[in-house]
């Protein structure tokens, strides 16, 4: 009774604060000039345009991922995973890497979802395998890649098989790590324990809303910092350099991997983007672009940093990079 009477005015206060902030922000937007300012240097202007475009493009996917993740946490009982997944770790990870077929989310949406799975008790290597494989092994990505390249030069096959192999390899490597909990940031590790030991009380709606507030507060700063870094690199680095390396079997692979890393484009559409470079680059480098970019890029690293430690991410990036290089060279040799 005490709590309830105390709660009502707090809800009102919270709502009022929210509405007040909304009005302030809307006013700010409405009062800001319509025409682009002449004072800003072009470089700065483009930096903002590029960074904002990454944010606007990724934001809906992050929201979708957060909502799906909450759905999994609230409505899927933990025993579903234990019953449906095979017991053998290798088979489990293989199944996890195919989970993207059911959840065709862009890679930025996968991060909150993977966090939800970790909270549900899945192991770090399993979540990692899902994170790396899902952006590639999902119907939307496969269809767009097919539309862009068909069966030409083994690009589609290279992407699917390469993505599957690399994701499972990384999962296997991390399963060897003796202290799994050290792979996660201390803060996220604590969240996992809290949820296991003492489930948050209240109705599902209430818990869902609280989880939404919690997740978005974690993901959005990461997304914004990642987008700003991506935008800054874009205005700072000239693409001519990358394009001139197109014909070399080794350098072209490295060049497109670097491009994939800095451009931070969603895996659902990256095939169309790189298609326009198709004439300039060798097929192996395109496969490397399509696999590496889907797994690791500046924006993804910022998002993943919310969950995994920096050294874990460094190892993931290096291993994935090395694998993609080998994959790209292999396709170049075969094609």
């Amino acid at each position: 009774m005490d709590i309830r009477t105390a709660t009502q005015p707090r809800i009102a206060t919270g709502l009022t604060a929210g509405i007040g902030l909304t009005v302030v922000l809307l006013t700010l937007r409405a009062l800001s000039p319509e025409e682009p300012s002449e004072n800003l240097p072009e470089l700065v202007q483009d930096f903002f345009t590029l960074s904002i475009s990454v944010v606007i493009e990724s934001l809906p996917f992050v929201f979708l991922g957060v909502i799906l993740s909450i759905g999994v946490q609230l409505f899927v009982p933990a025993r579903v995973f234990t019953r449906l997944l095979p017991t053998h770790p290798v088979a489990r990870r293989a199944v996890m890497s195919l989970l993207g077929v059911l959840l065709p989310v862009c890679e930025c949406g996968n991060v909150p979802l993977a966090r939800g799975l970790l909270v549900k008790g899945l192991s770090v290597p399993e979540a990692m395998t899902f994170l790396l494989a899902a952006p590639i092994l999902n119907p939307v990505t496969i269809i767009t890649t097919y539309q862009a390249f068909g069966w030409d030069h083994g690009i589609l096959l290279g992407r699917i098989l390469g993505g599957f192999a690399i994701a499972n390899l990384i999962g296997w490597l991390f399963s060897m790590h003796p202290r799994q909990e050290q792979l996660l940031t201390p803060r996220f590790e604590a969240t996992c324990h809290v949820d296991h030991d003492k489930p948050v009380e209240g109705s599902r709606f209430r818990r869902g809303v609280l989880a939404f507030a919690e997740e978005t507060s974690t993901m959005l700063p990461a997304l914004i910092v990642g987008s700003a870094v991506a935008g800054a690199i874009q205005v700072g680095v000239s693409r001519d350099l990358l394009a001139t390396l197109g014909g070399h079997p080794v350098l072209s692979v490295l060049a497109l991997m670097a491009l994939a890393f800095i451009i931070a484009i969603c895996s659902n559409v990256d095939a169309f983007f790189i298609l326009s470079f198709g004439s300039t680059f060798l097929p192996g480098s395109i496969v490397a672009f399509l696999v590496f970019g889907a797994m690791v890029d500046v924006k993804m690293l910022a998002l993943l940093r919310t969950t995994f430690t920096a050294s874990t991410l460094l190892r993931v990036t290096l291993t994935v990079g090395l694998c993609c290089l080998v994959l790209g060279l292999g396709v170049n040799l075969l094609a």
């Binding site: 709660t7 929210g18 809303v209 978005t216």
Partner: peptide
């Protein structure tokens, strides 16, 4: 959709 959740969050988070 996110707006709905955010509004609800503004109402609930302080009391929670």
């Amino acid at each position: 959709l996110a707006a709905v959740f955010t509004v609800a969050a503004f109402a609930i988070v302080p009391s929670a």
